[in-house]
């Protein structure tokens, strides 16, 4: 009996020893992901099938959360949010690509400085940075003070959709630049030399060699700007005038205001997640998720 027991114990020990390296290396991250990504997501899925209650949710199965999503009202809102994400992504790529390109051409010493420029905003909480933008672009803010001092017309930017777009691009630009820089840097200069040897002139080496080779970077940038953009509702709240409705704001209010409709908020979140996954799947035709690394 005793022998059998110790035998089993030894076997368990041996198993632990065998997987020890794996447990030590993947364990903490795995634990983190399960606790803070998987479990909350399960919560959201479960709540989305429950009933609306006094404070937001009550036990009992219901599909009402999902049924409410499928009204013209929220279709329009989701459309508007996707459009904002698309515009943000396009602008981030437009500004981010040349910047990343310049970074690869810059002298080695400059590169670390440029990376620092991109990383520096992360030292300050993003809500505070958005507040700073508010004081800059307010109708009586520093930007208009400067324009006035130069004898130019002042601009009305604060509380417009333009201000929301500005906030989004500002917030997400670093996430676009870094993957682009990564893939641009990997390009072997000899490829460009070969291209020019073979007769590629002016913009052709860029269009035929650089751009195709950096598509994975473009893909990663797009994912990293498009998806967060759908969720950054506080930028819409802080920069916009509240006269338009974005999906993040609708979701927020289901949990934090008198709507207390958690199932509806959860259902909206799930639909947003599914929609994003579908779009990503479509998008993998030009890149793959492995490029995200």
């Amino acid at each position: 009996m005793r022998g059998k027991f110790s035998n089993a114990g030894e076997r368990i020990l041996a198993a632990i020893r065998k997987f020890l390296a794996l447990i030590v290396m993947v364990g903490p991250t795995g634990f983190w992901l399960v606790l803070f990504v998987f479990v909350p997501l399960v919560f959201v899925v479960v709540i989305s099938f429950m009933q609306r209650g006094d404070y937001g949710v009550e036990a009992g199965f219901s599909l009402q959360g999902y049924l409410s999503v499928f009204s013209a009202l929220y279709g329009k809102t989701i459309g508007k949010s996707l459009l904002l994400a698309l515009e943000t992504t396009a602008l981030c790529l437009l500004f981010g690509y040349p910047f990343a390109y310049c970074m690869t051409k810059a002298p080695k010493k400059m590169v670390s400085f440029l990376v620092l420029l991109i990383m520096m905003p992360f030292w300050v909480n993003s809500v505070i940075r958005i507040y700073a933008w508010r004081t800059l672009i307010n109708d009586n803010g520093y930007l208009n003070m400067l324009l006035e001092a130069l004898g130019l017309n002042t601009i009305h930017l604060m509380r417009t959709n333009g201000a929301i777009l500005l906030g989004m691009v500002y917030e997400l630009l670093p996430f676009a630049v870094l993957p682009l820089y990564n893939s641009l840097e990997k390009i072997d200069p000899s490829l460009l030399e070969a291209a020019s040897d073979l007769g590629a002139k002016r913009h052709r080496p860029f269009l035929r060699v650089v751009l195709p080779l950096t598509m994975p970077g473009v893909f990663a940038s797009t994912i990293q700007t498009f998806i967060p953009c759908l969720g950054l509702y506080y930028i819409c709240n802080m920069m916009g005038g509240g006269t338009d409705l974005y999906i993040g704001q609708v979701i927020e209010r289901q949990f934090l205001s008198e709507a207390h409709n958690w199932p509806f908020g959860s259902a909206l979140s799930i639909i947003l997640i599914v929609l994003t996954i579908v779009m990503m799947k479509q998008y993998t035709r030009i890149g793959s998720l492995e490029d995200m690394a």
Partner: peptide, 16 residues
């Protein structure tokens, strides 16, 4: 009570 959701819905309609 439950009418809270109608408030939210009409508010969203107005905004959208």
């Amino acid at each position: 009570g439950d009418a809270g959701q109608y408030y939210d819905e009409i508010f969203n309609k107005m905004k959208a």
